[in-house]
Design a protein around this nucleic acid. Sequence first.
DNA 1: CGTTCTTTTGATAGCTCTCAAGTCGCGTGG
DNA 2: CCACGCGACTTGAGAGCTATCAAAAGAACG
Lengths: 249, 249
Amino acid sequence: MNPFRTRPNPITDDGDGDGFSFCGNCAFAGVCHAEGYDKPALKELHCLVQHVGPYHAGTLLFREGDPFNAIAAVRSGMVKTFRVDAAGREQVLGFFLLGEIIGLDAIHNGRFPCNAVALDTVSLCRFSFPMMATLATRMPGLQTQLFRLLSQDINKAAAMAGDFSADERMAAFVLSISRRFANHGFSPNRFALSMSRTDIGNYLRLAAETVSRVMRRFQNEGLLHVDRREFEILDMARLQQLALPLLRE
Amino acid sequence: MNPFRTRPNPITDDGDGDGFSFCGNCAFAGVCHAEGYDKPALKELHCLVQHVGPYHAGTLLFREGDPFNAIAAVRSGMVKTFRVDAAGREQVLGFFLLGEIIGLDAIHNGRFPCNAVALDTVSLCRFSFPMMATLATRMPGLQTQLFRLLSQDINKAAAMAGDFSADERMAAFVLSISRRFANHGFSPNRFALSMSRTDIGNYLRLAAETVSRVMRRFQNEGLLHVDRREFEILDMARLQQLALPLLRE
DNA sequence: CGTTCTTTTGATAGCTCTCAAGTCGCGTGG
DNA sequence: CCACGCGACTTGAGAGCTATCAAAAGAACG
C-alpha cells in the first residue's frame, strides 16, 4: 500500500545500458558529480536507492501519520502533497516534479505530516533515510546537500506564507513551474500541468474560481495562453514582474 | 557589526560555576543528554559555542544577503526575522525565543535570506555552521538533531502558509508563545511579549488594526486579558479549539 | 451519447485592509 | 510635578479583494 514502507523492487537499470543516466535529473546529482562517480561512497549511495513505481494517477503514496522511513526523488510524473483539515478543506503543501525530493518534512516527527498522491503516472527513487543519514556521516557532500535541500524547503514554505495577491501568486506559480521544467531541458514556455484548478487553488490559497478568473485575465492581457491544462507563456517579462514580490531566485 | 561574522567573545561561563547549566534551554540540549555530558565529542560541541551579546533592543543581528557562517541559539531575549519587499512592506518570518535556533534558512544559499533584529536585550550562542557540520559527521546524534530542527522549520513555515482566519491565526499565535514559554518552565498563562502589534500583524499576515480588533474581541469573550504587551490566557480550551486548524503538536 | 467531473462565468456576500481620527502611555523638558 | 510630544495602540467608517453560492458550458469516460 505505502511504497515508502515496502521494498517492492530491487534496483533496476533504466534499460538504456547506463544505470546512472536517470540521475542527471535528481536533486542529489550535484553530490554525485562532486564526489566523482567512481568513489566507493557513491556506489553506496546508489546501492540504497530503490526504484519504485510506476503508480497510476490517484495512487496514494503515503498518508498523514504514516511512519517515516524514507524520502523519495521523483523519477517521472508529478506528486502532490496535502493535508485535510477538520472542516474537510484540502491544503496542498507542494507539487513535486522531476528530481525533487519528497518527505523532508517528515523527519521532524518521524511521521508524515501530510498525504502524497500521484497526479499522473509516477515513478520514484526511494532512499531509506536512516541509511542515508548514516552514509552522510562518511560522505560530507551528501550531508551538505541534505542540509541544503532541507533549508531550501524552509524558504519555499516561507515564500508561500507571505500575503500576496491572487495575481502575484498565480504569476509566481506559473513561473516556478516553468523554471523547474527548464532546469531539466524542457521548454520554459510550453508545458502541461497534471493538477486540477482546484489543486492549484488549494496550493495558492485561492478558490478554484479565482484561479480560473485570474488565468482568464492573464490570457486577455496577453501574458499567457491556456488550453485546459496546457500552458504557454507569452510574456515572461511581465510575469516575472508580477511575481517579483514572491520569487527571489 | 554582524555578530554572526565576528568572534567578539571567547566562551564564558555563566558565572554560576557550571558552564553547562544554560544549555538546558537550548535546542541542542537533547543531543547533550543523549550523548552524555562526559563524551569528548560533546566537549567539542561546547568548544565551538561562542557566547555573543548582549545586544540591546533594535540591534540588527544580520541583514538579508549577509554571508552565512553560523547559526545561533537564543540564550536570552527575543529575536525577530523579517524581509522587506519592494513595496516597503515588512514580512516577519519568525520570532525566536529562548533556546530556539536562528539561521537554518540561510544554509541553502550560503546567505541570510532575511534580516534579524533584537526585540529586547538579547544574548546568543553562536555556532559556526561549517564546524558544526563537521562535528555532526562524528556525532550522529547531532546530525539527527540538525535534520530534525530543519525539518521542524519546514513544518512551521508550512503551517503559516495555510489560509486561516484572523481569529485562528491570533489564537494559534498566542498558544504557540504560551507553549514555548511553558517548555522552559515559565507560566503558560501569563507572559509578556516584546514585539509590537505591527510586528504581530506582519507575522500573521494581518493588518495591525486587525490584530488589535481580534484581541479586543478575545478579551470581550473572556478568552484572554491583554494589558499593553502583557498577556493572560483565561480560556485555554477555547483558544486551542480556535487554533486547531493551525496547530498540530 | 448519456453521465460525471472539471472548468467557466456571473452575482452576491464577507472578511480584512485602508484611511482617518482619537486615545493612551511614556520619556523629555520646562 | 506637570506640560508637551512622540510613538504605539485603539476604534470607526468605508472600500476592495476574494470567497461563496449558483448555474451553465465543456471535456472525459464508459
